[in-house]
Design a protein around this nucleic acid. Structure first.
Length: 557
DNA sequence: GCCGTTTTCGGCCCGACTGTTTTCAGTCG
């Protein structure tokens, strides 16, 4: 096992411990040990061999022996015992809002609850309200939460959908009778949350292909919907296969890609049916090609010359990157090297600010260390330029964490809300407007704080916020984290019309999460943005100039 | 479970919110 796998095993132990141990610090200790592993930069075997594992901060005797066992045998007796003690689906209960591990532990030990169905039965029979620490309101909240979790059960985030659809397409590749197969539906439109998988297949023999899909058991329970559509399942996800003759594949792809509104407008406008691909179909219809991402409404159909949408390859750098100094999993050096290897001209590091203590927000002392480390490591990745910023909390009153004097040390500031999410709309609007008025602020981070499929964002008057961001020349981040995708693409045009510029940021907490730049770019494309409206498509020179002109502005004040 | 120039016990990062155990515990970020 490598250090990442060991760390994830320790995290699992931490979760089980939180379920079963009344002492909250024991579970946190395992979590800290896992995080400590992330930070070590010598090979784990070396550390074990030298017996210096326990010299690593936050790794004591107990964790060290578990780590050694995992590294040696790939398993841990203690973890296996814990796994045997609880039903496999216990952590699924976390999908119910307001249910944490502690409460789940009580529900399991007192009522034998091990899944959503058990919990629902117990709540309906009033058994939950009788438990110590629970009451009638909590029981009601749980029933509501179960409904919330169920509604989202068969829905999934875009990256998971793409992965599943690609794997199906790969397995179809071996079927001779298929001349072409493409992912269509909402996944092709890059919608942030999907509820099914659609594959368009060109073939002269539907029967033979269907038999082959059955034989290869690509999906479960394959059944006919109509003569050109079949449906099956992979786990909870419904998979549709759509068939057409190769000569009609263009139309099939268009029809099954959707959206409904776009398709209806298209077929009303164009009667052509035969086309081997979409390009040919659009050409025959004399309609300018509309990128799949832009097919949510009929508007783009009318454009004579659609805008060139931004592409991920046009990004020359990015901002909003965390390191192990706050809650990131990779060190400054690792984050910088990975960015350089992506061919970036510049990178902006932004760890959390002091108030975000839960995320390891940086105190003055840690800021000093971070500054020195960034300066040291930046030399190794030259000529890539490293900017040092912060993701500073927007406090309850709209002021920015650290305050003017300390904010002055940064090249840029991403201002984000991380607390008091349920503020009334008017108050939240004023809070964010106040934040935008602070001249140190360069970017507004994750606009609504939403977590797709698990938490709605906080509310605000978007138009007033966009108006102010435009006036103050504060850029709105397109947070590309697939769980966030925030700002919502549906609001991009409103912001753009008020003079807002955008930056596609990954909110990366690890090297891997630089991939969020791809999902972020899809959001920008769905919002209809081209490269010129995206700050980080600009060359280093212009980016540097912009930061300096901003600094000059607040120095005047 | 981890830690320690208060070193083998007692504290651990914290603030807001909510419901409930009416003085605090669980959850969230």
């Amino acid at each position: 096992m490598d250090k990442w796998q060991i760390a994830s095993a320790l995290n699992e132990i931490s979760r089980y411990t939180e379920l079963s141990d009344p002492n909250p610090f024991r579970s946190r200790a395992f979590e800290k040990a896992a995080r400590a592993l992330h930070k070590i930069d010598v090979p784990i075997e070396t550390l074990i061999a030298s017996g210096e594992l326990t010299k690593t901060p936050d790794i004591g005797k107990a964790s060290a022996s578990i780590i050694e066992e995992l590294a040696r045998t790939g398993t841990s007796k203690y973890l296996e015992e814990l796994r045997a003690q609880f039903p496999s689906g216990i952590f699924e209960l976390l999908r119910v809002p307001k249910l944490g591990l502690r409460k789940i532990g009580v529900l399991h030990s007192e009522l034998g609850v091990s899944n959503l169905a058990d919990l629902e039965a117990a709540a309906r029979e009033g058994r939950v309200a009788k438990l110590k620490g629970f009451g009638a309101k909590t029981e009601e909240l749980i029933l509501k939460g179960i409904k919330f979790a169920r509604e989202r059960e068969s829905r999934f985030l875009l990256p998971a959908g793409i992965e599943l659809a690609e794997s199906i397409r790969e397995r179809l590749a071996g079927i001779d009778e298929i001349t072409d197969a493409e992912i269509s539906g909402s996944i092709r439109r890059r919608l942030e949350v999907c509820s099914n998988v659609n594959i368009a297949i060109a073939t002269k023999s539907v029967d033979k292909v269907v038999k082959a899909i059955e034989r290869k058991t690509i999906v479960e329970g394959l059944e006919e919907v109509d003569s050109i559509t079949y449906r099956g399942r992979i786990d909870d996800v419904v998979v549709f296969f759509h068939f057409a003759a190769p000569d009609d594949f263009g139309l099939l792809l268009l029809l099954t890609t959707g959206s409904k509104e776009f398709v209806e407008a298209f077929v009303a406008q164009c009667k052509v049916r035969h086309a081997v691909n979409e390009e040919e179909l659009f050409a025959k219809c004399k309609i300018a090609f509309v990128e799949p991402e832009r097919r949510e409404s009929a508007d783009d159909l009318k454009l004579k010359k659609p805008r060139a949408l931004v592409e991920a390859a046009q990004l020359r750098g990015t901002f909003h990157v965390h390191t192990t100094f706050s809650d990131g999993r990779n060190t400054v050096a690792e984050m910088l090297t990975a960015a350089r290897d992506r061919g970036f001209e510049y990178l902006g590091i932004s760890d959390h600010s002091e108030t975000a203590a839960y995320a390891g927000g940086l105190t003055d002392e840690k800021l000093k260390l971070q500054k020195a480390e960034i300066a040291r490591e930046a030399k190794n990745v030259a000529p890539m330029r490293v900017f040092r910023g912060t993701e500073a909390d927007i406090l309850g009153d709209g002021s920015i964490d650290y305050g003017a004097k300390r904010l002055a040390q940064f090249d840029f500031v991403i201002a984000s809300v991380h607390s008091r999410f349920q503020m009334p709309k008017d108050e939240m609007t004023e809070r964010i407007l106040t934040a935008l008025d602070d001249p140190h602020v360069t970017f507004l981070g994750h606009l609504t704080g939403r977590l797709l499929l698990s938490r709605d964002g906080y509310t605000m008057d978007f138009d007033r916020v966009f108006e102010r961001a435009g006036q103050r020349e504060v850029m709105i981040e397109i947070n590309g984290n697939p769980n966030r995708l925030d700002i919502d693409w549906r609001n991009i045009k409103r912001a753009l019309d008020r003079g807002v510029r955008f930056s596609i940021n990954p909110d990366a907490h690890s090297i891997r999460e630089y991939n969020a730049l791809i999902t972020g770019t899809w959001v920008a494309r769905k919002g209809g943005l081209s490269a010129k409206e995206i700050f980080n498509t600009q060359p280093l020179e212009q980016v540097t100039e912009w930061f300096e002109s901003r600094r000059a502005k607040w120095r005047e004040k």
